[in-house]
Every structure is written in C-alpha cells, then in structure tokens.
Simulated assay, not measured.
Amino acid sequence: MLASWNTTSTNPIKFTFYKESPGTWYIDLPDYPGPKGNLAMVAGTDDMLDFLAKGKNRVVVKMSEQPFAGALALDRVKVGEPGGGAYYKPLNHAIQSVWLCDVTLFALGKFPEHIYFQALE
C-alpha cells in the first residue's frame, strides 16, 4: 500500500496520471504488483482526467479526505459492484459518475467516503 488515508489527516497526497495513445489514462504506481492494465483509468475517471489535464498527457492530482480551497469533490455512492471497485458522484462537476477500481485499495487502503482533489500541474 502506498498511502494510508486518515479522515482526520490534513496532509493531501499526490498521484501522477499519464495518457498513452490511443487515449488511455493510467495512474503511475511503480510498486503496484499487478498488470499495467489494472492501472487504466476508465468509466468516468478518464473523462475527469481529460478535464483536469486540460489537453496535456500528464497531470498531477492532489487528493485528500478533507476539503481544501479550490478542490473538486467526489462522494462515494456504492461499493462492491460486480467487478469490484466503487462508484462516486462528482459534486461540483458535469460528469455524472466515476468508477474507481480495486487499485484504489492498493493506493489508498480503502474506498474513502469523500475524495477532494485538484490538478496541480
């Protein structure tokens, strides 16, 4: 596990995402023990990354369980759908739904109830 989130922590963590041809987004997790395909961002997460990256093929995203100035927000809606993962509803964005796969458990240790995030670069 890379990071362990704590709902009282005020220290955001950062993740880098990159886009490969023909347009698939991946999270950069060099210590992830599974296949690269598991790191692909799909089902709304790719649309959110396109929005955050503003035309670039790489974006660093700051995330926290606590709100912070300028952050967008995701609220967890469902966990454990077929195929695992969790569904989130963006609170302040036009994208209707974002699915986060079980790699989230490797990266964050859980499916947080709320995720606040902002593109840094």
Rank of each mutant, 00 (worst) to 15 (best):
A69E: 14
Q66K: 15
M48Q: 06
G80C: 11
W25F: 05
D50M: 05
A43F: 02
P30E: 07
A71T: 07
G44Y: 00
T104W: 00
L74W: 06
G80H: 08
A107Y: 05
M63D: 02
P67L: 07
K110A: 14
L49E: 02
W99S: 00
H93D: 01
P35F: 15
A71S: 14
K89W: 14
P35C: 14
P33E: 09
Y26G: 02
D50G: 02
V61M: 02
P112Q: 10
P67M: 09
K89G: 12
E65C: 12
L29Y: 07
G23M: 10
G85P: 01
N38S: 14
G37W: 10
P22H: 12
W25Q: 01
E65F: 13
N38V: 12
V103N: 03
I95L: 07
G34A: 14
Q66A: 11
L39K: 05
G70F: 09
I95V: 10
W25D: 00
D46Q: 04
G109I: 06
L108S: 05
K36E: 11
N92T: 11
G85E: 01
D28A: 09
V79I: 15
T104A: 07
K110Q: 15
G109M: 08
P22M: 12
L52E: 04
G83V: 01
D31Q: 13
L91M: 14
F68A: 10
A53F: 05
T45N: 00
L100A: 08
A43K: 05
A71Q: 05
N57L: 08
L105D: 04
A43D: 04
W99E: 00
V77L: 10
Y32N: 04
K54D: 13
Q96D: 08
L74T: 03
E113H: 15
E113T: 15
D75K: 15
D46L: 03
S97P: 11
P35L: 15
G44A: 02
L105P: 06
K89I: 12
Y87R: 03
K78M: 11
D31V: 12
V98P: 00
Q66N: 11
K62E: 14
L39Q: 02
Y88D: 02
L72N: 09
T104V: 05
K56M: 13
G55M: 11
E81R: 15
G34T: 13
Y87N: 06
M41D: 02
P30T: 12
W25M: 05
V98W: 00
L108N: 02
N38Q: 13
R58E: 13
G109Y: 07
G109E: 04
L91F: 09
G23A: 07
K89M: 13
R76Y: 08
L72D: 08
D75V: 15
L39I: 06
G84D: 03
L49K: 03
K89N: 15
S97N: 13
D47I: 08
L105I: 13
E113G: 14
A40I: 04
D46H: 03
G44S: 04
L29C: 08
F51A: 11
